[in-house]
Design a protein around this nucleic acid. Structure first.
Lengths: 335, 335
DNA sequence: CAGGAAAATGTCACCGGTTACATATCGCGA
DNA sequence: TCGCGATATGTAACCGGTGACATTTTCCTG
């Protein structure tokens, strides 16, 4: 492996001069500059970033902990974060946890060991100790989409789940529905709690009673949505409208619906959090709440780089707007 | 920042002993082991992975260059690769190139600088010089899905695009279609060439003439699919069936179809490469060729770790099977 | 042409683990 | 008790840039 010393020797200069030529900063005479560049060329020298990181105390790495990078929402967020990172000369280390808190802890520990310069967290549970260590080590951290309750001082980038859910459910209620159900997310997940709260609020405001059996906590993945929807549809009396926690669960829910020959929207109205390119083309087109996933990621990146550049970001929550797409999956009940 | 020397001092041992306790290998007396562990605990010591990487000459990083991590196929591949990486104690550095060859070159250069232990390439163009440098530096490399023509010796993990396309198109022909169109991908992309070749082969075998105007080269993104499909649909005589290069283009194509009130499958049959969770629920359900994206990523990982472990992998191409899902987007022509 | 500041360049300690090698310690048989 | 191999432990060079500081060169002023 050819090192900076080899280049220095070949060019007949000191390592410092080589570094100066390559990294800029202090000027170097044209003559030497050229000699160095030629040596670099001839030796096919590639500077060792690991050594540079060690010396500088900066890795140029951003850690991103997600539950599953294959989830479209997550992937969009990742992309937004990455673009922001690239803008600052950074790269992104992505790790999926599958909502496994042990795995989460491992990932955070590994981020700490690698001394990533900042961490974005888009995952599930508390990960308390892991995050605590990041904080202790002064690694800028931001939560994305959701944040454990006990970590309020760390910034969060999110959408207003509660209001968005409330509005969507109100839309159902305004259509005339009085018996609503929800395919919710895992109880421990803050966004699940918020969307459920929005659902309940809207119902309560309208004076509607929510039957407990109509609210199913789906574990994540399409399978969870399927199971939950099955339970709802197999009730002796079905609700006339269902609100889904996210698009993945909604897809599972659609499977259950199809399996039972339930007609949407005639027999059942459906609204879901999270939009998808294909929802407009589903039979019927799915009414959905769109989250600006890309922007969420980008915003998280901005926050992190602000911190890296020395700004104080504690307590800075960023709330991005949602968009409600009314399509064809809802109708008045009893049609 | 507390270092191994601090721990050594606190425990009253040498740094070597600390390293031995933490990394295993040579045994350490129980007494000292305990003192070290306590010191680690008390000082909240986190080993510096950068220093370790420099010293060991291994980073435990896998570089993954993709065109866009937000693409569902890509994200699945990434996930497969990541799971394999985790199994080996590795993490994945993901970078998107947006098919920009300059960006690709930058990413590869940065992978080289970071001395990632291996690289998986799922991107577009030649990236010739960048890849050449990886090879020169002995960094194990694998292509995923597609490989530039001049780099045959580097292993590739893929599906058999050509046959899959041929079979799908034959399915259309067997339905009675004689005037077929294709929304193809960018000409430079090997998979685009292969799928197009499969399309042409099937047509040729059946003695069908493909009208040049019916084959549109869509640049990528839904927008590209939309534009291409518009051009096809605006022909004086429309083909009766269209084969789409991938699911993203297909979504764009669906937009064009909807805009023009073309009925699928009555007026137009549609088949696309790449499946999606939602295709079964689209109106009509989309007939599609599924690629085992996750497995492709996992397989790529296996190949890389085999190389890292010293195996010779040059020339080892892995071809994974596709699955053809017949749904509702195709019918006999003229119905 | 001396003198001195500015600009260019060189030297080298340092970042923090790792590991080859040297040294110390222990156990056991003679 | 001595001696030797086996085992445990310590020492320090090394990985490859970086950048503070020292030194040299350049160039301008008087």
């Amino acid at each position: 492996m050819v090192s900076i010393r080899d280049v220095a020797k070949a060019a007949g200069v000191s390592t410092a001069t080589v570094a100066r030529v390559l990294n800029g900063g202090t000027p170097v005479s044209p003559d030497r500059t050229e000699r160095v560049l030629r040596a670099v060329q001839e030796l096919d020298y590639v500077s060792n970033g690991v050594a540079a990181s060690l010396s500088r105390g900066r890795t140029g790495l951003l850690g991103l902990l997600v539950s599953d990078i294959a989830n479209p929402f997550t992937a969009q967020v990742a992309r937004g974060l990455e673009d922001e990172a690239v803008r600052h000369g950074y790269q992104v280390l992505i790790a999926s946890s599958d909502f496994d808190s042990e795995r989460e802890a491992q990932v955070l520990a590994s981020f700490a060991r690698r001394t990533v310069d900042a961490v974005a967290l888009l995952s599930s549970s508390g990960v308390g100790e892991g995050v605590a260590r990041l904080i202790r080590n002064g690694i800028p951290t931001v939560f994305v989409d959701r944040r454990p309750p006990d970590l309020g001082e760390i910034p969060l980038v999110r959408t207003d789940s509660l209001s968005a859910a409330r509005e969507a459910v109100r839309y159902l209620i305004d259509l005339g529905h009085t018996d609503l159900g929800m395919i919710s997310g895992p109880a421990g997940m803050p966004t699940a709690a918020q969307r459920l709260a929005g659902f309940r609020e809207a119902c309560a405001t309208a004076g509607l009673v929510v039957r407990p059996k109509c609210v199913r906590e789906g574990f994540l993945g399409t399978q969870g949505g399927y199971t939950a929807m099955c339970e709802v549809l197999d009730l002796p009396v079905r609700p006339t409208a269902v609100f889904s926690f996210n698009n993945v669960l909604a897809i599972g829910a659609l499977e259950a619906v199809r399996e039972r020959d339930v007609r949407i929207p005639a027999d059942l109205s459906l609204v879901t959090f999270d939009d998808t390119d294909l929802f407009p083309f589903v039979d019927p087109p799915i009414t959905a709440i769109e989250q600006p996933a890309y922007d969420i990621g980008a915003e998280a990146g901005k926050l992190l780089f602000a911190r890296i550049d020395g700004a104080e970001t504690a307590g800075t929550d960023v709330v991005l707007p949602t968009r409600f797409h009314v399509r064809g999956s809802c109708d008045r009940p009893g049609r």
